[in-house]
């Protein structure tokens, strides 16, 4: 499978994704799944400027991502599917049944109503349930900000409080 990572990261394209994961996994494309960004040329240009020339970015809606996921999986070179929030990943898992085997929670940062689970994961009760719903579809959900860190299983980080 050429999708090396299905990642939830509220910063979308940034250093951890492009350098931290991109170089060791030799990523050659990013599927950025965001309905708003998919409709904004300016936002797309902003994110496109953040990736090295050897990396292609596809800006798609959830519906487009679900429809094109079988083709992305067949790509010869590895890529990453990137969403900005848990709700978007939930919608993608539902829209593309069986095509999302794992989910990497890479960055859901502090906001009002969220409780700290790990240094880089803060969740509302609804978001906790959202991750459990994703897992209920047979998806392996872990939290891991960078490749050198340990992948923390879902139930372990949901039970955690504060920094890891």
């Amino acid at each position: 499978m050429s999708i090396a990572l299905f990642r939830i990261d509220d910063r979308l394209i940034h250093g951890q994704v492009v350098v931290g994961w991109g170089q060791p996994l030799e990523l050659r494309f990013i599927v950025l799944v965001d309905d708003e960004v998919a409709g904004s040329e300016w936002e797309q240009e902003l994110y496109r400027m953040g990736v090295p020339p050897e990396m292609t970015v596809h800006f798609v809606t959830v519906a487009e991502a679900a429809a094109q996921l079988p083709a992305y999986v067949q790509q010869a070179q590895p890529g990453i599917v990137l969403v900005g929030d848990i709700g978007t990943m939930q919608r993608l898992v539902l829209a593309a049944p069986g095509l999302v085997p794992t989910v990497n929670v890479g960055g859901v940062h502090h906001a009002p109503g969220r409780l700290g689970k790990l240094r880089y994961v803060f969740l509302t009760p609804a978001e906790e349930q959202g991750l459990r719903d994703i897992a209920s579809h047979g998806v392996v959900v872990t939290a891991q900000d960078v490749p050198s860190a340990r992948a923390v299983p879902l139930e372990e980080f949901l039970a955690a409080s504060g920094a890891d």
């Binding site: 910063r11 300016w42 902003l46 994110y47 090295p52």
Partner: peptide, 16 residues
């Protein structure tokens, strides 16, 4: 620090 970094992304919005 980094062209692809989140600070740069945030500042590019501010510049606009």
């Amino acid at each position: 620090d980094l062209p692809a970094g989140s600070c740069t992304m945030a500042v590019r919005r501010l510049v606009r």
